[in-house]
Amino acid sequence: MVASQPMIQLRRVFRSFGSTQAVHDVSFEVEAGQVFGYIGPNGAGKTTSMRILATLDLPDYGDALIDGFSCVNDPDRVRRRLGFMPDNFGTYANMNCIEYLDFFARSYGILGRDRTRALRRTLAYTGLDKIAEKSIRGLSKGMRQRLCLGRAMIHDPAVLILDEPANGLDPRARIELRQMICGLAAEGKALLVSSHILSELGEMCDSIGIIERGKLIVSGTVAEIKTKLRPHIDVLVQLTDGGEQLSHWLAGKPKVANIQVSERVVRFQFACTDPQLQAELLRAIISANFSVLEYSTESRSLEDVFLQITTGAVQ
């Protein structure tokens, strides 16, 4: 692994199927230890870009790189560094969990004691150790997701690409999956995760990319994107009395706009997302002898950002 080199890179990738432009000039990078959330409506081009990165498809133009190796020209080197969990994955009949993982460990050339260790680690990490000998046919959806994640990480890859990993999981399993993903990132792995559950992505991703109709509309950290799309916060101040006075006091201040008064509650927009300045704003209100009962700021959720950016158009 080369320091300072992004672990995942898409460089101006184009991919079309007939007249449908599935991916159009998409570029982004993910560093080691980062979780990148890939968001977009159905048919936006997420899975196509992920399949290109996973060496399952070829771009019409551009290149995808994993740890500096081209997915187009060096797929064998890429595969050794990559764990891919597809949205729709299959399992073999007549096999139990340990046989399934053992087969894939062998497929990655892990032999002898190393394979034993890899199996132990994976089973423990995914919580499958209690049902290691259970037939795959009898597994629940959540357990199958865990098994597939285990398969993707059996060879300890530096990069993990997870396509809708939380799809169909119950709330508890989702929380556990989120913890697993954060744990993998803490180990220094680069993760690319697509999901429809945006609140969860917002919590675990260092950065996100929003794609629609094959085009990457925006990418960056969640905070950066929120700031870029709406460079102010909504502030709510509840006083013991003197709502009108506060609104008059605020009216002359810079960065303040849209003041609304409702008895003792004052709402306004403050053109700043810096938490330090938000604290200073509270200090200034109290210093001006207003009796503050409640002070809260409302930041926008990832859902709001997603809805604002995307049009919902499908192709």
Binding site: F104, S107, Y108
Partner: peptide, 13 residues
């Protein structure tokens, strides 16, 4: 059964 893709992305040729 969608297992072919899993084989393809392994180190098996």
């Amino acid at each position: 059964d969608s297992t072919f893709e899993l084989l393809s992305i392994s180190a098996l040729s």
